[in-house]
Every structure is written in C-alpha cells, then in structure tokens.
Simulated scan of single mutants.
Amino acid sequence: MEAFHFKKEGHIAIVTIDSPPANALSRNLLKNLDQLLDQLETDSDVKVVLLKGEGRFFSAGANIKEFTGFQEASDYESLARGGQQVFDRIEKFHIPVIAAIHGAALGGGLELAMACHMRIVTENAKIGLPELTLGIIPGFAGTQRLPQYVGTAKAYELILSGTPISGVEAAKIGLVNHAVSEDILIEEAMKLATSIAEKSKLSIKEIMKLVPYAKTEQFQTGVKEEAQAFGRIFGSEDAKEGVQAFLEKRKPQFKDK
C-alpha cells in the first residue's frame, strides 16, 4: 500500500509510515491509513498494532504544500474532518495501537500519535503542535486530545507557544508512556506489544471498549468546532502569510488579520 509498509510478527502488526522526506500526512496518506485499518480490522490474528515512521521522522505533520491548493474554508474544514475521522477510528479501534516515535512528531504527526493508545518516544525527539507559528491552528483534534494527556494549562502553553518539547519532557508530563534512547526504541515498543499480545484477545477487546467511556461528553463537540475553526482560520491573511513563509523557509510577518 502506498505510503505504508505492513508486516506481521506473530500477533503483532508492524505498520511503517513511508512517505519521504518527512512522512507528511497528505489526504492520500490518510485515505490509505483508513484502508489499512479496514484490513487490520478483519485480521483475526492481529492482537496489537505497532505504528512507526521510516527515515528521519515519525511524522513532521500535515502536508503544508497541499494547503496552497485549497480555495474555500469548506476545503480546509473537510480536510480537518477527514483527518479527525481517521484518528477517531484509531482511538476507538478494538486492537491496541502503540506509536513508536523517533525524530519528530509535530502538528498532525503528534495528533496521529495522540490518537494511538500508547506512545514510546526517543529521548531527543521533538514533540509539539507548532501550527500557530504558521498562523493556523491544529485541525486533527489536537486541541481536544492534548489537554486530556497534559492538563489544560500545559496544553495552552504548548499550543500557544508552538515550541516543541523533547521526548524526555513529553514523558515527564504524561504525553507519552516512556522515553528511551533511539537505539532501543523499536526493541522497547516490541516488548510492550509482545506483553499485550500474550493476553487473551477477548479480554483485550473488552478493555478497548471500556476505557474510552472515561472520555468527557464534550469531546465530540470540541472536535467539530475545531474543524470549523480550522476552516475559518485559513481565510485570514495571516494564515496565507504563515503557510507561504513556511514554504519559503522564512519568518512570517503576521498582521493580525
């Protein structure tokens, strides 16, 4: 499948994002991810999914170049809703998904990782939601999932500053399960996956149904409003300037309009 490698080791499905150079989350990649979930959903042998990235990054975020091809707010809202639906499907998946993060999980890459049920990260990885530095906002449910992991005050800080944190700090604030050295990342992720795969699939499936009940009822409202805001923001001059500055590798000049 384009943009993904897929193999099985026992009851563990190892899925690798392979979309060089940064594993950017294009519309096509998200569509392929959704199709891969279809495949995994019907594989009775799989008990755990391990998601990782090929190359230098787990995922450096959304495909910014795609943004320049959209014209209307509804185009951007549709993009946000599409990503949200795939990530929501991961979070509600009956098979546990472990993200093994190296290099960077930024923007949409972090939003993808947060939709996974567990996260193991390298100590020196860059983790964050830098969208506001481009004059835009997170659109794949980042504003709703991040506070659940780190609390509202830290979520405000990370989103509003746009400053990435290290894997070590991400572990300290509860955003990821463990931070490890890069040379043992996959080994540690496989250890966790193996310990789960040894359990009864019937028990695993029940846990995957029960834990999500702890989520607030306001989550879906927040996700819907995030997609609408994502669309509105792209109508601003600042969003156009921020995206253009990113593509031109320069600092944006925001005018607050």
Rank of each mutant, 00 (worst) to 15 (best):
146 L>E: 10
18 D>P: 04
133 T>M: 10
103 G>Q: 08
6 F>M: 09
106 L>K: 03
38 D>H: 05
13 A>D: 03
107 G>T: 01
133 T>I: 07
150 V>T: 05
75 D>I: 11
72 E>M: 14
113 A>S: 11
23 N>P: 02
73 A>K: 12
72 E>Q: 15
147 P>V: 08
109 G>S: 05
146 L>I: 07
105 A>G: 07
69 G>L: 08
23 N>C: 08
9 E>G: 01
124 N>F: 06
102 H>N: 11
9 E>Y: 03
9 E>V: 12
45 D>C: 00
143 T>L: 14
11 H>W: 00
99 A>C: 06
22 A>V: 06
74 S>A: 14
131 E>T: 00
25 L>S: 09
65 K>I: 11
47 K>P: 01
96 P>G: 10
31 K>T: 13
34 D>R: 15
38 D>G: 06
56 R>C: 02
109 G>A: 05
61 G>S: 10
140 F>P: 01
67 F>G: 01
91 E>D: 11
30 L>F: 06
32 N>S: 11
35 Q>I: 06
111 E>H: 03
151 G>N: 05
87 F>H: 08
22 A>R: 15
67 F>A: 12
10 G>E: 04
57 F>Q: 05
17 I>Y: 04
124 N>L: 05
149 Y>D: 11
98 I>R: 01
52 K>F: 00
102 H>S: 14
56 R>K: 15
84 Q>F: 09
56 R>I: 07
103 G>I: 06
47 K>E: 13
7 K>H: 15
66 E>D: 09
7 K>M: 13
84 Q>P: 09
27 R>E: 07
